[in-house]
Amino acid sequence: MKEFKYVITDPEGIHARPAGEFVKAAASFASDVKIAKEGKSVSAKKIFGVMGLAVKQGQEITVTVEGEDEEAAAAKLEEFLKANL
């Protein structure tokens, strides 16, 4: 299992558009991807769940990846967050 934390810097937080892109990226891996904020954890492959976390600027999320391609997935998703959020 791979796990990393990230603090959102985008002033609008995880709004619809990047949420959609993040879900798309997560769904492209076979591993199970979870995203958690303040103890609440949801599947990163479901857009309603990700948007439902309503993550705002300055808040920290924890991304957990578990499965056969977890190395690649974790690296890719962390890269995505840094570039877009």
Binding site: A16, R17, A19, G20, V23, S43, K45, K46, I47, F48
Partner: peptide, 19 residues
């Protein structure tokens, strides 16, 4: 494209597992 993106999100929403 930026404003059109909402319709891409809408498609993803229709495919959302929980929904």
């Amino acid at each position: 494209e930026a404003n059109a993106a909402i319709f891409e999100i809408h498609q993803m929403m229709l495919d959302d597992g929980d929904y």
